[in-house]
Amino acid sequence: MNRKEDKTIRRKATQERLKPQCEEFAVLLADYWEGDASAGLKAEIEAHSRSCPECRAVFESYRQTVTVCRMEKGAPEHAPSHKQLWDELFHQIQALHTYLDE
């Protein structure tokens, strides 16, 4: 599905307030998770995911994907210490100044 089709589906679902069908469900998930769906559309998406097992599976796996990615927030434990980084940077900054002065 290309971007133009995405937009058309969004327009149809938000402006004409059509019930989300399976083919547009995945596209509307983005609006749902980014808080761009109206309360009505949000309720329709939830209702559709309850009644359609395939879309419920998509909804659940999308939710899990976003959740596990957000759990990863923060610097990994192998990040260099400030001293390690700054010592190296300071050295490089001095070298840069020497180069620019020459």
Partner: peptide
Amino acid sequence: VKSRLHRGRMMLREKLGKYM
């Protein structure tokens, strides 16, 4: 941003599907 985010998430979802 929103469009790329959605596509990226859908790809991640597929890649992590088996694992999850």
